[in-house]
Amino acid sequence: MAEVVGAYFTSHVPSIGGAIHRGAQDDPYWKPFFDGFPRVHEWLAEMKPDVAVTFSNDHGLNFFLDKMPTFAVGAAEEYHNADEGWGLPVYTSMKGHPALSWHVIEQLVADEFDPVTCQEMLVDHALSIPFELAWPGADQWPVRVVPIGINTVQHPLPSARRCLALGRSVHRALQSWQGAERIVIIGTGGLSHQLDGERAGFMNREYDTFCMDKLAAEPDALTRDSIHEIVRQAGTQGVEVLNWIAARGALGPSAREIHRNYHIPISNTAGATMLLEPA
């Protein structure tokens, strides 16, 4: 039987990639964020996952507004990164797990979620940076990936309740999967930040703390707010917390927090990293 070993959550700000590239992890500006990762490395070394089921949002690399899926599941043999417009070095490709992807898709559709299925899908910094942070310096990733995309770009967005339910459906799929994989769930993005408008630069420690406090034991508390109110509290891009909520659903019914790091600011964002284990 496959085992869900736990869940890893982190911010995915593009400039983290720049800091890694420059080797700036110990600079005073970056150290408080990167200090959250030795524990992640230790935990991953202990858990030895070989599959990652990930929840993230595309930022205009794979999806454009011509076709914008609310939920998308990758079912490719391989996922490549590409130039996101800034000419930065391209991140290491990821191997897929199409059989598990299709098993997840079957469960989602049986549960009346109707995702777009993608046999070709580029992955952007939202996935590559959490991988770089988790397995620094790896020349190939130790996990195969089932990437699940959530629209956090163009409103209307799926509700937090819907995202949690989506994650729970993914958990049911993992429970019935007959393989022997060790699966880590990954949720990326956030926490609070806003890049656009007169409120650019907005962050909200109080709301982020609420989200982190509730994530393990009381995830339904994160679904009490409408998207509009989540944007109010978390910022226009802080709504990426939807990825965390879906990932929490995929972890399973009960969970305990084993690690947390939170630091303001990294770039315009409240940087956060957490580890949860099934309880």
Partner: peptide
């Protein structure tokens, strides 16, 4: 900066349809 529940969000435009 947060404003009041149910009211427009200060300094913020939602990217909607």
């Amino acid at each position: 900066m947060i404003g009041k529940p149910g009211k427009p969000i200060p300094g913020t435009t939602l990217f909607d349809g």
